[in-house]
């Protein structure tokens, strides 16, 4: 912040803060949508040159869509396994990109929160100055030894001080709301990023283990069971993530609707507690499955 904060500049500053806050909400909405897109049960959409129309396209679609390994040959099994591994790789990559985006979002929100704290401190000082002006004006007004003109000036000063005091108080209230909202968004972001990171981390660990055995594909009979196991784990993680993204959507809607409400902090607190409970349940389920 450059220069001293004045009661008159508070309104513009708060509008600017509100704009930034709305931008964060939009960002979170985008990330939630992206998280919701993480799926392992459906084939990954491929690029045009990877899955062209015609022979190749129909062949690859047919191989990918084959529910059971063909008895015609192990090659079909291996190609189906490859397609499934490629799907898992693509989803893991998407998840890890989301982790990076959440990290950027979290740090940005944290920076916003710090700046809001600074604004509050400055707005408080404005409030104090305005209050001092009012007290000084009251003293001046009550001083019978002063001339009528001086008493008029003191009355005007008191009136201006009271107006500034009210402005500063309203600004403080709005700042408190934005602070609570930013804090809530930060908590939600951290909850989501932990879950997405858990998803990506677990998927990457399993893919690492699988890649060590990649050479055995096609010659080791249990290759299919290895991939089956991988898919089951990833689907389970995707399910946990799905719980969180559904929750995050609800948060987004409520945050959007309640940004100007004074009860926002309490509502966010409830939602964040819910998120933490879901995450704990998710972790317990994952632990039970492993």
């Amino acid at each position: 912040m450059t220069g001293p904060l004045t009661p008159q500049s508070l309104s513009a500053l708060l509008d600017e803060e509100q704009r930034r806050h709305d931008a964060w909400l939009q960002t979170i909405r985008g990330l939630v949508d992206a998280s919701r897109g993480l799926r392992l049960s459906t084939p990954v959409k491929r690029g045009v040159d990877d899955d062209p129309p015609g022979v190749l396209g129909s062949l690859r679609r047919r191989l990918r869509g084959r529910p059971k390994p063909s008895v015609a040959g192990r090659r079909s099994t291996e190609d189906a396994l490859r397609a499934r591994i490629e799907t898992a790789l693509a989803e893991t990559k998407k998840a890890s990109l989301l982790v990076d985006r959440f990290a950027a979002l979290r740090d940005g929100l944290f920076a916003d929160l710090e700046r809001l704290h600074e604004h509050v401190a400055q707005a408080n000082s404005v409030d104090v100055v305005a209050g001092q002006e009012v007290v000084a004006a009251r003293v001046g007004e009550g001083d019978l030894s002063r001339s009528e003109r001086e008493r008029d000036q003191a009355r005007q000063q008191r009136s201006r001080g009271e107006r500034d005091q009210q402005l500063a108080q309203r600004a403080l209230e709005r700042l408190a709301v934005l602070q609570a909202s930013a804090r809530g968004l930060l908590d939600v972001t951290e909850t989501l990023s932990v879950d997405v990171a858990s998803f990506a981390g677990a998927a990457e660990r399993q893919l690492d283990a699988l890649s060590a055995r990649a050479r055995a594909l096609g010659v080791v009979e249990d290759a299919a069971s290895v991939v089956d196991e991988l898919e089951r784990s990833l689907l389970s993680l995707a399910g946990s993530l799905d719980d969180v993204t559904v929750f995050a959507s609800a948060v987004h809607e409520r945050v959007s609707a309640q940004t100007s409400d004074t009860g926002l902090a309490q509502a966010l607190e409830t939602l964040v507690q819910g998120a933490l409970a879901r995450r704990a349940a998710s972790a317990a389920r994952e632990q039970a499955q492993s």
Binding site: A23, T27, A34, D100, L105, D107, G108, A111, R115
Partner: peptide, 19 residues
């Protein structure tokens, strides 16, 4: 989709810049 810190925050913050 993640706005740059400069677009959101007029104050450069090392952590945000890094992420």
């Amino acid at each position: 989709p993640v706005p740059a810190p400069a677009e959101i925050s007029p104050t450069p913050v090392a952590a945000a810049d890094s992420a």
